[in-house]
Design a binder for these strands. Structure first.
Lengths: 337, 337
DNA sequence: CAAAAATATGGTAACGTTATCAGGATAACG
DNA sequence: CGTTATCCTGATAACGTTACCATATTTTTG
């Protein structure tokens, strides 16, 4: 691969001049710049970010640490991050902590090794260890979505208390009084804030709280179990508030099993959304590709290829798609019209 | 920040010995190893990946280039990639091409600059330019999801022809004969393969094709328009095959506007899925967080912080969540039971 | 027991870039 | 016209690591 030196020699300038051209820094005459740029194109020179970062202490790299990129909420957030970062010539590394503080620390270490310039962090726990660690390595941190108490950082979130408050008011307006909330773990600020907003709304309306607060995990399974618990009470809730999108799904699943209709029997509200118009229940008859498996296999292939453990012939792996028959198909001419 | 030299000095060994310890390479006596490891922990040494990569020509970095990480299909794939990569100590950079070959080339350049070890590529077009470019820079490529003709690489995909064939057979089994297919652009292999499978199934069943093949984009808007076109024919399709998940959504949206029920009036099948049990139509009453905006704002903040254009005080940005009232809520005591 | 192999450690240089300092040429100024 | 400011270019060294080669000690082997 050609280097600044090759470009420099060919353009009859010093390497540093080439550096000035590609970085648009310092003074350069039009003619030299043109000459250098011509050579760069000619020999297909590509600057080496590693050397650049090593010397300049700037890598133009950010990291986005979330709990699970698979959650559409975080996916969308990631897209926002990448679009902005890309416009400023930054590259983004994504990390999934799966709500594990251990994983979070592991990633923090990796990111320090990689000398990233900054980290966007959705903290897995209330823990400030990660932030302090990054800080001690001179890495800027912006905290996203969840508060971490007692740490000084920039912080971006949406208003959980207010949102919850308004959702509950909406339910109250519909006549609901037995309103349960199923939320995440106590160590996560959003889980707590949403309870606060919930209680606030109930208090303002003069409704007793009735111990209908259920702390759990921010996932479907946990919500499913807690919903069953909540619906086993003698005085059943007429409405349930799920503190995030996966929780909503767990609620729906449990209610369906209990043969309860939404909203006729139980109203459901929640935080976070799913991309416009996805399925309330498995709906589409579809050929489902094993996307995760494909990602896995491809990466394994690639890694082997990199360490050249693979025979010369290129592999071609074609996985079957699974046909899943659901509600979007039926016999011809059964129109209800 | 401490370096190998600091560790070496303190452990009374040569820097190269420290390198051997952290890389687990070469011969090292137990005692030296312990001594070095103790010093590493003691002074909080973190190896610098840039220097390492510069010297060793290996960055332990992969890139996943997809069209849009926002599509659950790719999100899931990404998770598969990251899990495997992470296990082998590789970090993954994600890139969204938005089906643009120009963006793809731009990213290829960035990835070459970053000296990534390998690229997992979902090609935006039939174009082999990117692959050749990466190849010329000694970067391994595994192609995912879509074929690129005339290029030698590893390749992982699912079986589009077979999947389509089986979906159409399923429809035929239900008595459908007027079956339309709405697919992606002709330059994308999956769009074409799915048509092939479709035609195959029709031929095998002895059903005329009737010009019900609609090429477009792999997105909702395009599918929406094509569905309207298809349903404007004198002999209307009784079933529609959408060649990916976003296309399915566009089909549903158009049919709903045309007051047609699924599956009573029109059956719908498609490729790709959505995560278990999402909404068929906007269903949940929810507090919707501006996830994308949050990602944007946070990144802008971070970038400013990195170049320290920001005043010392840390910012706290709290965005309102939008309350969207939909079908999951209703007045109390309206049970159908 | 000499020779070969395995183990343990280190010195030197190089990866490709840019920070820093410096010098010369040209333009602007009072 | 001397002085200062602006413009243009370059030499040198350094960023932190590991490849490569070398040496010394210990163990194994025939």
């Amino acid at each position: 691969m050609p280097t600044v030196h090759d470009v420099a020699k060919r353009a009859r300038v010093a390497p540093i001049t080439v550096s000035r051209v590609i970085n648009n820094s310092g003074y350069i005459s039009e003619s030299t710049r043109n000459r250098v740029e011509a050579v760069i194109r000619e020999i297909g020179y590509v600057p080496n970010t590693l050397a650049r970062g090593l010397r300049s202490k700037r890598t133009n790299t950010l990291a986005l640490v979330v709990t699970d990129i698979t959650n559409p909420y975080f996916t969308l957030m990631a897209r926002g991050v990448e679009d902005v970062a890309g416009d400023s010539n930054y590259t983004v590394i994504y990390c999934n902590t799966d709500e594990s503080e251990a994983k979070e620390e592991k990633y923090a270490n990796i990111l320090a090794q990689r000398q990233v310039d900054g980290v966007l962090l959705v903290p897995a726990g209330g823990n400030d260890k990660t932030i302090k660690f990054l800080d001690s390595h001179g890495i800027s941190v912006v905290v996203l979505d969840r508060r971490v108490s007692g740490v000084k950082t920039d912080f971006v979130c949406s208003d959980s208390e207010d949102g919850s408050n308004r959702l509950i008011k909406l339910l109250i307006g519909l006549g609901h009084k037995q309103i349960a909330i199923i939320t995440g773990p106590k160590k996560v600020s959003t889980a707590v804030d949403r309870v606060t907003g919930y209680k606030q709304a109930l208090n303002e309306a003069g409704i007793a709280e009735n111990e209908l607060v259920y702390y759990g995990e921010f996932n479907q399974q946990s919500a499913y179990e807690l919903t069953k618990q909540a619906m086993a009470r003698s005085l059943k809730p007429t409405a349930i508030f799920g503190a995030n999108n996966f929780i909503m799904l767990g609620i729906i699943k449990a209610l369906r099993e209990l043969q309860l209709n939404v909203p006729e029997d139980v109203s459901v509200v929640g935080f976070d959304d799913f991309p416009e118009s996805m399925l309330v229940r498995p709906f589409f008859t579809a050929a489902v590709q094993p996307a995760y498996e494909m990602g896995r296999l491809a990466t394994e292939l690639l890694l082997k290829r990199i360490v050249s453990e693979l025979p010369e012939e290129f592999q071609k792996i074609i996985l079957p798609a699974e046909i899943i028959e659901r509600e979007s198909t039926g016999p011809v001419g059964k129109s209800t019209a």
